[in-house]
């Protein structure tokens, strides 16, 4: 475990070189929130009105949290790197290293998310307070609980991205799969809560990655209750186990197929 902690730490150190890039990403984040703030202000006739179970303030905080999660977890570069490594054969150089490859991926991606997460959380909270002038009713324990679901969401997202990347072992180019996955999370999991979708889709969404990666932590933040927290945590652990097993399986198949023709 110590080595994975070290890999995580090393990736955090390495990512500190990119802080300016993260700051540049803030511009897009701010514009997005500004648009949604005005959109929801226009849709809600009065701030206390409730639409699909959300007040205007809850709705905007929901988008603030899902946008933080999206900015931190989207992992386009990470997934593309695995796809390129698999296609180019570079992944072979990890095979004879004394670590578990999935564990290595997890530690590096969590490390690269860490700095971004801190910066986006600070910025998101600041913007929320400026736009809305209020904060959801949370205490230190519920904040901690939301943070735990956020961390687990990062773990799940990393494992799913790793799985998509490693899927290149089987279909040569998994980029289209990443495109579908990322658009699903962005469109169905970031902009609107599950309650906004037709009732027949809602159960499907509640079993989809959207629930554990995006909706769950954001919904807890705006309307915290311990029963839902337990429910989300259980789902998240199930997802982690399944995603890890899927990654291990596809990696095992891939290593067997490994056809590095170097030199």
């Amino acid at each position: 475990m110590k080595k994975y902690w070290f890999i995580f730490k090393t990736e955090v150190m390495s990512n500190m070189q990119y802080i300016l890039n993260v700051l540049a990403g803030f511009i897009g984040y701010f514009i997005m929130l500004f648009i949604f703030f005005n959109l929801w202000k226009y849709i809600y006739n009065e701030p206390n009105q409730i639409i699909n179970g959300y007040t205007m303030s809850q709705m905007i905080w929901y988008v603030i949290i899902t946008e933080i999660l999206w900015s931190v977890l989207s992992g386009r570069k990470y997934c593309a790197k695995i796809i390129d490594d698999v296609r180019g054969g570079n992944i072979a150089y990890n095979v004879n290293k004394p670590y578990n490859y999935i564990g290595y991926c997890l530690a590096t991606h969590l490390g690269s998310c860490f700095i971004r997460a801190i910066m986006y959380i600070v910025l998101g909270m600041f913007i929320g307070l400026i736009f809305l002038g209020n904060f959801p009713s949370l205490n230190i324990f519920s904040i901690l609980a939301v943070l735990i679901t956020g961390i687990l969401a990062t773990v799940i997202s990393t494992l799913l991205l790793t799985f998509i990347g490693l899927f290149s072992f089987i279909i040569e180019d998994a980029n289209p799969f990443y495109w579908v996955y990322s658009k699903l999370i962005l469109v169905l999991g970031t902009i609107f809560p599950i309650e906004y979708f037709p009732t027949f889709i809602q159960p499907i969404l509640k079993f989809s990655p959207i629930y554990v990666v995006s909706y769950g932590p954001a919904h807890l933040f705006v309307n915290f209750n311990w029963a839902e927290f337990i429910n989300i945590i259980i789902f998240q652990f199930i997802y982690i186990i399944i995603a890890y097993l899927m990654c291990s399986l596809v990696y095992k198949i891939g290593v067997k197929r490994l056809n590095v023709n170097g030199g």
Partner: peptide, 26 residues
Amino acid sequence: VFGQKEQLWTHLTPYDNFKFFGAIYD
């Protein structure tokens, strides 16, 4: 050492890299 394959972390110093390799080899 594969001359055409970089294994060092380019944003880190050699010292930090050596510490990293030490850690992964326990």
